[in-house]
Amino acid sequence: MPRERKSVPWLKVRDGVHYVYWYDPDAETPSDEEAAAGKKAKGRTKRISLATKDPVEARSRYAAFLSGGHEIFGPRRDDRRLDVSTALDQYRMEHVSKEVVDRARAEGIIVLLKRWFKDTPVEEIDIPACRAYADARMDGTLIAPKKGDGSGRGGRSVSESTARREIGILNAAVEHAARWKRIGPKARPPTPMPSIELPAGGKPRLVFLTTDELAGVVNASEGRLHDFIQVLYYTAARRRSVERLVRYQVDLRAGTINLTSPLESENERRSKKRRPVVPIHAKIRPIIERLYAASQANNVEWLWGDDKDMYTPFNDHLTALGLADKAFPHVLRHSRASHLLQAGVPIAHVAKLLGDTIATVDRVYGKMAPDDVADAIAESGI
């Protein structure tokens, strides 16, 4: 007795890779002679790879196959070529939302890329198109909206290194689509790969406040902004680490602040950006004690009472003082490191405060240290 054919596509694993199988009763059309003789089409079992070895991901793609079938996995028609906006959306949903630590920045870049490239087919992206985007960003033709979420300063032209980072997101989205076999030589049918060129970029210019500029910024501020600027400077921390401080991280008796937040996401825990334990400097001790007491009295865990984003207030404050090119909170971290090295503090101590390696600090800030090479050589007598 012949085996009953399955009416619903099924999953099967071959060499660790998951496939969808289904029976197509009309797979092979009979020839004219066979049709004249009354013979019917010859059915056969077909299969298509889901391009994954992960069982969870395979089930997700299997569900997509069942709902969309050949419209998703079948032969690609010319009017269904993958466009840049779709590729970027897929990259955002499937990778950025799950793996990227600074999602806000990546998503802000994706918005700009979509605005520029729109529904251009991915395979048509070439070097002139990449250069046109980079030029538009660097001359201010294409500007980001001014935001307070830390995804970018917005409202202005950018450096070549920033344009390089943004084209890098486009390149990452293309490589993601190729891994999923949506484009490239392994797609069905195979498609050309785009030609993406990253701007040269060069070494980013180190931006920091001079001691006089810092004093002016502090003296002209008041209230929460005044406290925030000083705490951020003397801890040399990253903005969000200070904004999200809770009392648990502050040890007044030991005189330290643990910058590793108990509220970190899984992505943040995987980040290579270390958040060290830093000393409470004498200049900010009264501020920390006052904030600690206030949060305790108000029965809130946030040291500041909440986790308000201070990017925009800081940006507006420095812009009003004529320091628009330095109007981003991270400039205080750069400033603290630069000032310490200029004062002769050993680079190992600065690296420990920043939570960076000595090699990184030397590469980024090394030129700020006093030039004592000639004296060292003279004293050695060699």
Rank of each mutant, 00 (worst) to 15 (best):
residue 343 A to D: 14
residue 72 I to S: 13
residue 233 Y to G: 13
residue 47 R to Q: 15
residue 78 D to L: 06
residue 146 K to G: 04
residue 331 V to G: 03
residue 316 D to W: 03
residue 95 H to S: 01
residue 380 S to P: 01
residue 278 V to P: 02
residue 135 D to C: 05
residue 127 I to H: 11
residue 240 R to I: 07
residue 190 P to F: 04
residue 3 R to K: 13
residue 50 L to T: 06
residue 163 A to M: 08
residue 296 Q to V: 07
residue 59 R to S: 09
residue 210 T to N: 03
residue 228 F to L: 02
residue 52 T to K: 02
residue 6 K to G: 13
residue 242 V to M: 08
residue 281 H to S: 14
residue 197 E to I: 06
residue 77 R to Y: 00
residue 214 L to K: 02
residue 157 S to P: 09
residue 290 R to F: 04
residue 303 L to W: 06
residue 202 G to H: 06
residue 242 V to W: 10
residue 212 D to T: 10
residue 275 R to G: 07
residue 161 S to I: 03
residue 288 I to F: 08
residue 132 A to T: 05
residue 154 G to W: 09
residue 196 I to L: 13
residue 306 D to W: 12
residue 37 A to I: 04
residue 320 A to W: 04
residue 159 S to T: 15
residue 200 A to L: 10
residue 42 K to W: 03
residue 202 G to C: 12
residue 97 S to P: 02
residue 88 L to V: 06
residue 139 D to H: 05
residue 357 T to S: 14
residue 372 D to K: 10
residue 303 L to R: 01
residue 253 R to D: 10
residue 100 V to S: 13
residue 55 P to E: 15
residue 246 V to H: 14
residue 183 I to G: 11
residue 218 V to P: 00
residue 210 T to F: 03
residue 202 G to L: 09
residue 332 L to Y: 03
residue 357 T to R: 04
residue 227 D to Y: 05
residue 20 V to N: 13
residue 356 D to M: 06
residue 243 E to T: 06
residue 142 L to F: 03
residue 324 A to I: 07
residue 97 S to C: 08
residue 293 A to S: 15
residue 242 V to P: 09
residue 338 S to P: 01
residue 135 D to Q: 02
residue 15 D to K: 14
residue 98 K to R: 13
residue 295 S to W: 07
residue 72 I to C: 12
residue 59 R to M: 09
